[in-house]
Design a binder for these strands. Structure first.
Lengths: 249, 249
DNA sequence: CGTTAAGTTGAAGTGAATCAAGTACCGTGG
DNA sequence: CCACGGTACTTGATTCACTTCAACTTAACG
C-alpha cells in the first residue's frame, strides 16, 4: 500500500498520487493507462475527522472520489434540523449527480473519520469519462445505484409510520450483505444516537428508547460501538407494518 | 400532430409510430436520423386510466418513454401501505435506473390518465444510446435529475416533522416553475386526498384537515380539481424553508 | 481529574392516526 | 327525471406515539 503524499493533511499535491486501491471500486476499474491519465488531472487530499468537504449552497465545480474513510452526506433546513441522506463508503463518487446535471449538489459532506480522497474539476472528470467508456459506464451505474438507494430510503421514510419500523429498516440496510443468511450479524456503529435520529427523522431520546427496547426483546445486542443483530426475523417483523411486535412493551 | 396507430388501446404496433413530439423532451432531442432508428426498435402503446405499466417484483427487461399523460410511480409494503415516489411527466423515461444498473426496478407504474408511451427492450435501448452519444448524455442527465428530486423528497420527509410542512413542500414542488415569481399559481390536482397522503406518508383525513386549514388561512384556494396558491410566502413559511432548494431543478 | 459530549430515563404535552358518522359528487340504470 | 351505489371528501372524538423538557449517569479526552 503506497503512502500518501508527505504534504500532510488538508493540503493538495499534484504528483505521485498512488492511492491505496484496496477498497475503492472506482480505482479498481481503471486500467494502468487510465490510472496514469487520471493521476495527471486529479489531486490527492486528506481530511481529518469533522472536515466539511463541501457544504450546501456553494457551487462545487469539483468531484471527490472517496478512497478511504466514510463521509456523511446531509441536508439542513432553516430550523437547523439536519437529515442524513447517506453514509458514503470508499469508492463512492461524491458530487456525481452534479457532474451530470450541472446543478449545485445542495448537500453537505462531512468526514466521519480521517478520509483520503481524489478530487478533480468537473470538466476534467467529464473529459476523463469521455476517454474511457468503461469508466463512464461504471459512473453511470454508480449513479443509478445511488438513485435506487434513495428510493429505498424514501420507502422507509414514507411507508413506516412508527419509529421502530424505520430504525429496524435502517439497521437491516446497514447489516452487511454477506451476513444476510447468517442468524447474527455485526454492525459497526460509526454514528451517535443523535445522528441515527437524523437518518430517520426522529429525536435522540427516541433512538435510545427504541434501541433499548430491541435489546430487551433480545432482537439486538449492543457492546460498545458495535451492534449485533440477534434475531433477524424479529427485526424484519418490526420493519414491516404488522405492528404486533411494536405494540408489546 | 400525427394520430396514434389505429390498433386501439392496449395494443402494440411496430410501424408508423409518429408520436406527438410536443411535450416529450426525449423525442425532441432526437435527430431525424435517430428518430428513424428509434422507430425501428420501439413499439407504440396506449394505456387507459388505472393500467399498471409494470409492478414491483417483476423484472422488466423493458423501458418506457412517456409521451403523453401522467404515470404514478409507487412502492408498496407488506401491510398494503403505499408510498408515491413521483408522478412521471411526459418525456420521462420509466425504468431508466434499471436500464443502467441491471436491477429490477422495484416500483409500480400506474397510468393516472390515458397514456401514450414508446416501449422497447433494455438491450435495444442501450444499443440505441450507444449509437447516439447526445441521447445517451440526455438519458444520464435525466437520471441525475431523478436522483436530485429523490433527495429533495427525502429532505422533505426527513426534516419536516409536522404534516403541514410536508404538504406545503409538496405543493411548492408541484407549482409550475414559470409561475414561481408570480404571486399566485395554479396547480391541477390529478391526485385524490388519499394519494396526496401517500406522497407524504400521512392519512387521508389529515390531508383534508391541513388543506382546509391552508384555505381558512387564505394561503390556498380550492376550486374543483384545481388548487391556487394565494399566499406563497406563507406557504414557504409553513414549509420551513427559504424555497431556494425547491426551485432547483 | 475536571470538562464536555453522549447516552439514559421519567413526566408532561401534542400532533396525527384511527375510528366513526356523516355529506357531496359522480355515473348508471330504472 | 330521480333513485341508486360507489367513491371521494369532511368533521368530530378518542387514543397513542413521539417530542420536548429536565435531571441524571456514563463515557471520552486533554
Amino acid at each position: 500500500m503506497a503512502s500518501l503524499p508527505p504534504t500532510g493533511s488538508m493540503t493538495s499535491s499534484r504528483k505521485a498520487i498512488s492511492w491505496p486501491v484496496g477498497k475503492c471500486d472506482f480505482l479498481r476499474c481503471l486500467t494502468v493507462e487510465a490510472i496514469e491519465d487520471f493521476e495527471s488531472i486529479a489531486w490527492s487530499k486528506s481530511f481529518p475527522v469533522g472536515t466539511m468537504l463541501f457544504t450546501e449552497g456553494q457551487t462545487p465545480a469539483e468531484v471527490f472520489i472517496l478512497v478511504q474513510g466514510e463521509v456523511k452526506l446531509s441536508v439542513t433546513s432553516v430550523g437547523g434540523k439536519r437529515f442524513i441522506l447517506r453514509i458514503a463508503q470508499p469508492g463512492e463518487i461524491l458530487g456525481l449527480a452534479s457532474v451530470f446535471s450541472g446543478h449545485s449538489s445542495e448537500m453537505t459532506a462531512e468526514a466521519l473519520h480521517h478520509c483520503d480522497v481524489a478530487h478533480l474539476r468537473r470538466e476534467d472528470f467529464l473529459g476523463f469519462l469521455g476517454r474511457y467508456p468503461p469508466v463512464h459506464q461504471f459512473a453511470v451505474r454508480e449513479l443509478s445505484l445511488y438513485y435506487e438507494q434513495a428510493c429505498v430510503r424514501l420507502r422507509t421514510m414514507g411507508v413506516a409510520s412508527v419509529v421502530a419500523a424505520k430504525l429496524a429498516r435502517l439497521l437491516l440496510e446497514w447489516s452487511p450483505e454477506r451476513n444476510q443468511r447468517e442468524r447474527n450479524s455485526l454492525i459497526r456503529m460509526a454514528l451517535t444516537h443523535s445522528e441515527i435520529g437524523e437518518c430517520i427523522g426522529t429525536s435522540r431520546e427516541t433512538v435510545t428508547r427504541v434501541l433499548r427496547k430491541f435489546q430487551r426483546q433480545a432482537i439486538v445486542e449492543m457492546r460498545g460501538s458495535t451492534l449485533e443483530i440477534i434475531d433477524r426475523p424479529a427485526l424484519e417483523e418490526c420493519a414491516g407494518v404488522s405492528g404486533a411486535v411494536l405494540r408489546s412493551h
